[in-house]
Design a protein around this nucleic acid. Structure first.
Lengths: 184, 184
DNA sequence: TAGTGCATGTAACAGGTTACATGATTTT
DNA sequence: AAAATCATGTAACCTGTTACATGCACTA
């Protein structure tokens, strides 16, 4: 929220729209959370109500303390490197469902990655040439991460499905051999 | 937890060790959470106390209902595709700190990715050839995802740092030109 | 016998989600 | 006049983290 307000004053409602539109893939936030957090930030002096509009609209702006806190967070607080992926956790236990279902799971992951990749390409077409130099650059960089991540996910999931298919084949052959041995 | 117990009975303490050792990068869990969750799962009939040992040790085993629930979760519940990355969120606001600090941030991300990649390579050396066919395969697949993800992160962060450096250069040139214009 | 490791649990708090609740202004 | 949009807030609940609290059993 400090980041968004650093670009100019906005109401809780405005921020909500921004979260829904452009930050949704990076940091989703709910309406309740936003208003609660605005109250908290105001109490801490990091934002202040700059103007009041119709329908009880309160336009917030970032304070100097807020800007300092934002800069501090940006470069001095070490990023978390998101662990915890239920997508990957499932992979560990995929032997519980047999090769067919396991392969299906991985193939669906690949399809999904392709779909998300396409969506990001769509966004890129849409935002091309928007904003000034610096803003566009950082937006591009973030978008590029999404593109590379989804591409890597697709490649990996396809590769993994192939490995599972190979195991499937191997098992089938063994079964066949065992059958022949019994027949002989 | 159901996944871990599907490989054989274990106590809360055992599960904790497994989480710390092998699931730490995929799904970290704390001790409090584990014991609380075991109680809940037992109440729901997904696990049961199979044996009691010294020091109040309770060995849990998965029930048939638990196994069914695990299989259901594995293939029928759609995975989340982790959104929410504070690492990426920062990128959006990097214009607040100037090109120098922004480049520093991205370079640190690259270094970190390299470090994590190396750690995963170490793990791969360590686990090579362990477990049976199916288990090893899915372990390999999960590890491969880590390797690809960290490699992609390194490449991306280096590329991004390069783009920021280019902007830095451009700005420096403009500044120079402006200086010359004033001199003339 | 002192230290380490095994073993289980509770309490307070932080962050986030869903659902509830209300009402003013603008557009059709 | 009705519908959509703008606009703000609260309450209950769930998940997860940190810190507290306890004690047995093995080993050096």
């Amino acid at each position: 929220m400090l980041g968004l307000l650093s670009a100019g004053p906005a109401s809780g409602y405005d921020l909500l729209k921004t979260f829904e539109l452009s930050l949704e893939n990076v940091w989703p936030a709910t309406q309740s959370q936003l208003y609660a957090e605005l109250g908290r930030l105001a109490k801490e002096g990091l934002v202040r109500v700059a103007a009041e509009g119709p329908r009880g609209r309160k336009e917030y702006e970032i304070t100097e303390e807020g800007r300092a806190e934002l800069r501090h967070w940006l470069v001095e607080v070490p990023p978390t490197m998101t662990r915890r992926s239920d997508m990957l956790l499932r992979v560990f236990f995929l032997d519980q469902v047999g090769t067919g279902a396991a392969r299906g799971y991985l193939e669906r992951l690949a399809e999904r990655a392709v779909h998300e990749h396409d969506q990001l390409l769509g966004i890129r077409e849409f935002v091309i040439g928007q904003g000034d130099d610096a803003l566009r650059l950082y937006g591009d960089i973030a978008l590029e991460w999404g593109l590379r991540l989804t591409a890597a996910q697709r490649d990996w999931a396809e590769w993994a499905a192939g490995r599972v298919a190979a195991l499937e084949q191997e098992k089938a052959l063994e079964h066949e051999k065992a059958g022949q041995a019994v027949a002989e």
